[in-house]
Amino acid sequence: MSARSWNLALGLVCVAFALLAVFVWIPHDVSSGVIVQERGQTNVGDAMAPTAWCYALGALGLLLVLTSWRSRPAAKSAVASGPRITAANVRFLALLIFMLVVSLVLMRYAGPVLVALLHALGANVTDYRSLRDAIPWKYLGFVIGGTTLVAGLLALIEGRIRTRQILLALIAVIVIALIVDLPFKHLPLPPNNEL
């Protein structure tokens, strides 16, 4: 796809988003209208601002469509540096999102799941909430999730998984956890504030 086509697509997405928001989202998800009557006074309602921004977004999208439509096709060299989302970009983004999801799931659930597991095996632990301020539990979720994320991204960048990356990630994340935790005792690391 040429840069012109990408701009055209972006313009169409803006127009479609604006139409959808003005005719479906805003009417169904804003309790007041564009203009409201309150105690005999005419005031601006909660729907005014999002509606106005959608009109502006739609108009700009249309303008982008028209200017892209009328522009001459760019030279091949310009296409490479123009706006575009390639299959490689989509693959990268999918992989990145996968790594983020896995890491955050581990960060969020590693501690509670491990406590539940130990409890089931008969260990003298009750629930994660009572342990979340104690070492090593308070670091567990952040270190496991953070190490997974850093090691995964290092592997993505270098194109292969190596033990060295995992060790480096583990040490770096422990250092970050200590830097955050030691001087700021009252600030819990993720996910301890909510559990």
Binding site: G146, L149, V150, L153, I157, A169, A172, A177, L189, P190
Partner: peptide, 10 residues
């Protein structure tokens, strides 16, 4: 870069 990401999350 990966470390910046983790620090930002924290």
């Amino acid at each position: 870069m990966p470390l910046v990401l983790v620090i930002t999350v924290a």
